[in-house]
Design a binder for these strands. Structure first.
Lengths: 294, 294
DNA sequence: TACTATAGTTTGTCCTAGACAAAATGCAAT
DNA sequence: ATTGCATTTTGTCTAGGACAAACTATAGTA
């Protein structure tokens, strides 16, 4: 089993150009060739690339990681991901829920989530349960402990729950007004929905466009809906470098009076940030930003 | 103001390779060059490319559309959606709602939809309002009368409405049990949600996986959730041929005892159907299929 | 008349290998 | 410890050729 360069791009989020130039410069990835002379990547190279991407995202240099031997790579991987926010999910209700998910106990998971939401209220539910649990789900998926179907099912359950509970009466006249969406290539909408629920409870006026809106469309919509802020969500599908570039492109077409808030787990480990946008990795950052704006 | 080829790819969803080969073959897009000899696309070419994409998506051939003059292009945009089923939307509440959308009166649209839902109940709302209106929105988008942002906004509003109104108490023990999803490459989830709302009201037990689930994952999930039917939604993003092939691939990996129901506007004009699946273009087909199953 | 097989055309993606600007780093001098 | 400058690293862009898969059209068959 092996895949072509287009599939590898989709799986890893690394562009075809970059994959080819890495091969030329560093000798990895080193695809086989099919009958037609085209690159064919065995699945173990995909796995290795995923590890490599993780390390690059966390700040290591490509030239370093790509030239590393298997042993070095393993050593590097052991040091780095310790910094990721695992401490929150080590114990408590989030861990229990994650266990339910791993055991495929979906109906039970659903009812537990429903109770938690009723008990905690929207804001606490989002910050204390939904956000860390979603992070955990991402980890479980990356390590292959749950499948795509389970991740999709989780996403559906949480979405249904949040949308039923979200207050929909518009906070008319309130400021700031915030436009929520993601850029093209970012299909993950759960973060967006959590933010929207949280903000709606905070009486902030939100307009969501869902996922994958092109930059020029965002710029036009921001004016049409007269928003003060454009809020964007980034998962780890993109590399921070790619995301920064896209943010820069949006900033260039967006009216200068409109602020850009970039959220999501992507920024957790990113060192360098682009001017012209504010970065927030959790809900306390968001709360602070709202307070500052007001 | 102009953008580079990477930005154009993100804005239009057309790959860099394709953009370059179109330029070579058809002379459009025809970018300027910056100081560094690199392609720079003025924004009017972006707009034209968006129109071209819409026409290609609606079934026209690239070679035809890309060689068209301005006048021809405008003419094509005007006539294309006429072939689709417009008779339903010629008058009545659906037309009025579509007009609101065209005028960007989103808050008003939202409140009208809410009233309609309360008045009609979920099932009638879905069949009489939501489904034809969504078709109409697709047409408006194809003809360029609304933008991507407005289509996204509509989708968000309707989704929010349907999810709030959908009954979520599981119809435990009821048969058939149905797994709902779309295949990879089909991002349109509104149809799925309408079906789910309708079925939930009918006391059919639904399990939704959202959009874009690979065939093998569907097969595994169908067994895990012990469903009797896999329901798939197809918009006109794919051609019937492509869809048939993918459907065949799913049929091959799916347990033979599980039925496949293929729905969506795609099948409206398709003559040839694949054995091993049932096809339904509207809710009366769905109702009939349920009755037959029971 | 309607369906099917074959030949021809269109179309998207892949290829190589070179180039360069922007970003990151190392090093010197304040 | 911070700033300024030179050097290295890195991702994206370029050209034009190639080919398989998808689509269309034409001929042949029931």
């Amino acid at each position: 089993m092996s895949i072509d360069i287009g599939a590898l791009e989709r799986e890893t989020g690394i562009s075809k150009d970059t994959l080819r130039v890495w091969e030329r410069r560093y000798g990895f990835p080193k695809p086989l060739r099919d009958a037609n002379g085209e690159r064919t990547y065995p699945l173990d190279q995909l796995a290795r690339l995923r590890s490599i991407r993780r390390l690059i995202d966390s700040g290591l240099r490509p030239g370093r990681v790509l030239r590393a031997t298997d042993g070095e790579l393993a050593a590097l991987l052991r040091q780095v991901p310790a910094s990721a926010g695992t401490e929150l999910t080590e114990s408590g209700p989030v861990r229990d829920l994650a266990v339910l998910l791993e055991r495929r106990e979906m109906p039970l998971l659903q009812s537990r989530l429903t109770s938690a939401l009723l008990q905690l209220g929207v804001q606490s539910f989002v910050t204390e349960i939904a956000a860390p649990l979603t992070t955990r789900v991402g980890e479980l998926w990356e390590t292959g402990r749950i499948s795509v179907a389970e991740e999709h099912r989780y996403s559906e359950i949480l979405q249904q729950l949040l949308r039923s509970a979200m207050r929909t009466d518009p906070a008319a006249g309130e400021r700031p007004r915030i436009l929520l969406t993601t850029l093209p290539g970012e299909p993950h909408g759960l973060g967006l929905l959590m933010v929207q629920s949280w903000l709606a409870a905070e009486r902030v006026h939100c307009v969501s466009l869902g996922t994958q809106t092109p930059a020029t469309e965002i710029a036009a919509a921001a004016l049409a809906y007269q928003v003060d802020v454009v809020g964007l969500s980034f998962s780890r599908i993109h590399t921070p470098t790619t995301a920064r570039r896209e943010l820069g492109a949006l900033r260039a077409v967006l009216d200068a009076s409109i602020a850009v808030w970039a959220g999501g787990s992507l920024w957790q480990h990113a060192r360098k940030k682009l001017p012209g946008a504010e970065y927030m990795v959790d809900f306390s950052d968001l709360a602070a930003a709202i307070k500052r704006w007001r």
